[in-house]
Simulated assay, not measured.
Amino acid sequence: MSRPLKVVDSADPAAVFRALRAALSGVGPAILPHPGRPEGLPETVEQRVAVVVETSGSTGRPKRVALGADSLLASAAASDVTLGGPGQWLMALPAHYIAGVNVLVRSLASQTEPITIDANGTRFVAAANELDAALRFVSLVPTQLQRLIEQDDALDALRRFDRILVGGQATPAPLLARAAELGLTVTRTYGSSETSGGCVWDGEPIGDTGVRVVDGRVELSGSMLAHGYLGDPERTESAFHELDGRRWYRTDDTGTFADGILRISGRADDMIISGGVKISLGEVEQAVRALPGLGDAVVVATEHAQWGQSSVVVTTRPAELLQLRDAVAAVLGRAAAPTGVVVVDAIPLLSSGKPDRAAAARLAGG
């Protein structure tokens, strides 16, 4: 059996919210929240598909993740349990990203109306004050949290939230420490469109999420998993597999899982070879971001005449290269030390608030 697939303008979160309610209940078509006019979509999808989320692929070819109502609602239920109950959400993320969809699904599951604002944070203070539920939540990316912390008038608004979820990318340790000093209850989330959003909070799996690391790669399982990629069986087969009756999603992230805690070290596709040594750009970036004033720095690859490849730090704050090299070398070894620093007026961002690494690489000459 099949059902129609409808594109909904993600610039109108209220429209996405209404269409999502119908899609999850089964009375309406499946939806693809999108800011433009995507091409190559089928008119119908399998009946079990409720939402399609388009996300960029490492090859530049977009991935269209097919999610079922059961998966999305299982994610929302696990969130409610971990948060201590259902509450009202402030929607500060684009509605075409899984984190934005997740906020809307949680709101539907909680039977509350989300307050929506521009993803850049416009009206944040006023919107936070409109929340009137017993429990109040917001989901942000690290860049948003950093900007809000720096705004004096936003601190009281941030303190109104019972939980601030931060995900989409690694959150710098100094930012987490600063948030704690200010009395903010921040939780780091990890997940992807393929897992209906965040399924690991502060390193611990929530709900029935299963975690394991195979050959250095993180794999996830549980009732929140997507059905696969729309119209792409080959990619689906590559990313999802079954073992002993349990279905697993093989992520592009590297890390370790010990004593019930998942620690992400980087991405499998962010590895470079510098002087014959394999280096993770993610690990270099974590080491750089731990330094004072460099919490928003981005580390990108560049060609190097002597070493083949090396890393360059793109930052909005002037930094002494020798000090940076020593700091990174102390953590990761001398081979991982960056070979350059590029100071820019602002870190280029995607509409989700994440760093635009391709644009940063161009600024660095990579």
Results as ranks from 00 to 15, higher is better:
360 A>K: 04
90 L>S: 14
72 L>K: 15
325 R>M: 10
30 A>Q: 05
147 R>C: 00
196 S>E: 10
318 P>H: 06
35 P>F: 14
27 V>M: 02
142 P>H: 03
26 G>V: 00
79 S>K: 10
8 V>Q: 02
41 L>F: 11
137 F>T: 03
142 P>S: 01
276 G>H: 07
151 Q>C: 01
327 A>P: 00
283 E>K: 05
324 L>G: 04
366 G>W: 00
99 A>E: 13
257 F>C: 03
195 T>W: 08
123 R>Q: 11
282 G>A: 13
17 F>S: 04
38 P>V: 05
176 L>W: 04
218 V>A: 09
228 G>C: 12
202 D>A: 06
272 I>C: 02
360 A>V: 06
264 I>Y: 04
126 A>N: 07
171 T>H: 00
88 Q>C: 12
125 V>G: 04
244 D>I: 05
222 G>M: 03
62 P>T: 06
121 G>D: 09
30 A>F: 02
269 D>P: 01
66 A>I: 07
48 R>V: 14
86 P>Y: 15
170 A>N: 09
304 H>K: 12
105 V>N: 15
134 A>H: 07
56 S>F: 12
64 R>H: 11
42 P>I: 07
268 A>W: 04
140 L>T: 04
203 G>A: 11
64 R>C: 08
4 P>F: 03
227 H>T: 06
30 A>L: 06
156 D>F: 00
75 S>L: 07
324 L>W: 04
46 E>S: 15
138 V>C: 03
296 D>E: 08
120 N>L: 12
208 D>P: 12
259 D>E: 09
305 A>Q: 12
335 A>P: 07
58 S>C: 07
70 D>M: 08
146 Q>S: 02
14 A>L: 11
144 Q>R: 00
128 A>W: 01
241 H>N: 11
12 D>G: 05
164 I>W: 02
92 A>E: 13
274 S>M: 07
363 L>F: 02
39 E>V: 11
40 G>K: 10
346 A>P: 00
360 A>P: 03
245 G>Y: 14
161 F>C: 00
20 L>M: 11
280 S>I: 02
225 L>E: 03
78 A>G: 14
168 G>T: 11
144 Q>H: 00
354 K>M: 09
284 V>N: 02
22 A>D: 08
268 A>Y: 03
307 W>A: 14
303 E>V: 11
103 V>D: 03
99 A>T: 05
226 A>N: 01
286 Q>G: 12
89 W>S: 08
41 L>I: 15
33 P>K: 01
8 V>K: 02
117 I>V: 09
15 A>F: 06
241 H>F: 15
237 E>K: 13
287 A>I: 02
83 L>S: 10
236 T>V: 11
335 A>N: 06
350 L>Q: 12
166 V>M: 02
291 L>V: 07
253 D>Y: 05
73 L>H: 12
240 F>L: 15
260 G>F: 00
163 R>P: 02
175 L>K: 04
145 L>I: 01
66 A>D: 10
359 A>W: 02
257 F>V: 05
303 E>W: 07
109 A>Y: 09
101 V>S: 13
360 A>D: 03
362 R>N: 03
84 G>Y: 14
22 A>G: 05
281 L>P: 06
192 S>C: 13
250 R>D: 13
43 E>P: 08
272 I>V: 00
340 G>A: 15
222 G>Y: 06
246 R>W: 11
291 L>K: 04
114 P>H: 12
